[in-house]
Nucleic acid binder design. Structure first.
Lengths: 198, 198
DNA sequence: CGCAGGCTTGAGTCCATTCAAGTACAGTGG
DNA sequence: CCACTGTACTTGAATGGACTCAAGCCTGCG
């Protein structure tokens, strides 16, 4: 992309940006998935966003990140110096409005997640999550989960045991199958949607 | 402000925009508070945002609102036709970047709320909320709550009984006082912060 | 083949919810 | 001025869903 961009890679669990720490660059994710994490002093943590390639990572308004960004599985990305992208944003309204669109989309997802976290049961949260991954995977009956059970728990505001139990229950009742632990096969989409509770 | 803007007012509980419904205008909030609500089919609802005057209300990317917007107490605002504001945005990069800043701020708040909803206890959520209102009110020891217990519950992902119990507990232990139900007096800020758990 | 990390399952506990009274308070009309 | 009414709020008792703690099981990999 940019002349000064630097190609990088990271493996699962590596930190790309640290909460409240300054960073001189953005990152353009070219392949893989990253999670955005917020942590309480005592270690409890919540995944407040997932980003899939291709996308831009980094706080558009300040050099300090407001979340920790970690790779989920292997990740390829390019570092882009702040000054460079900021200069382009200033002179290119089309880029700015594209970024605005992405931002609005993230806000919308964040608010849906707030509804989930605040008002849905464990069953509904897990089912909604499967449904979203199903849609992200082109509505194919079988798809791959990027996240471990622990990450799902941190994303859904549950414990990993609860996530596991809910997945088992969905499997037991014939709604989905798990050919390979991280692979999901949707057997009864209507019932999965019903379980997600909208 | 704009030549074509129309001054309006609404009372507590009135709906300014309806979820998934098209609207030909934005609203510029000149006084009062509004809540952004998402609702599940069975009626459970979650407040996914609060907006305080002065601010702009409305979906910047599409004419359909993604949330229901309701007045919290009496509210004064101006309707601004979509085309008008959109035209200004296109020709005025400074306005656009101001809006971008507001949006980033909302996203940040949404993510903090996700951490609250997903990982904090009832006590911590209620204490954090009081703390945020305390800060919004200029860190004055006593301040007014804009929300009813029911609204607080919908914002914090709790029931109104739980909110009430937590407030009573904070009062009983001498952390805060409630001279007039909606009025809060912070008696021990350090302990309130401790109860908020960061 | 054995280890380690990820996952499942079980038993018991606890925090928030539900259901149910009962209290405070503002507004209204007699 | 005071009873009346409705809304907001508080408090109690019992329930239940998700959590904690604790084994044990897969499975990929060295």
């Amino acid at each position: 992309m940019a002349a000064t961009a630097r190609a990088m890679q990271a493996s699962s669990g590596d930190t790309l940006f640290d909460e409240a720490e300054e960073s001189g660059s953005y990152a353009s994710l070219s392949s893989g998935v990253v999670k955005l994490i917020k942590t309480l002093e005592d270690g409890r943590q919540q995944i407040v966003g997932l980003q899939f390639a291709p996308c831009l990572i980094g706080n558009l308004s300040a050099p300090e990140a407001s979340v920790t960004v970690e790779a989920v599985g292997p990740v390829f990305y390019c570092k882009i110096p702040r000054e460079e992208l900021d200069a382009r944003r200033a002179e290119n309204p089309q880029l700015e409005s594209h970024l605005m669109g992405e931002l609005l989309n993230e806000l919308e997802i964040a608010r849906d997640t707030m509804l989930s976290l605040g008002r849905k049961t464990a069953r509904e949260r897990v089912a909604s999550f499967l449904l979203r991954m199903h849609e992200a995977g082109g509505r194919n009956a079988s798809f791959e989960l990027a996240l471990t059970r622990t990450d799902m728990a941190d994303y859904l505001g549950l414990t990993l045991e609860t996530v596991s139990r809910q997945l088992s229950a969905l499997k037991r009742t014939g709604v989905v199958e798990f050919p390979h632990l991280r692979e999901v096969y949707v057997r009864d989409l209507a019932r999965l949607e019903a379980a997600a509770g909208s």
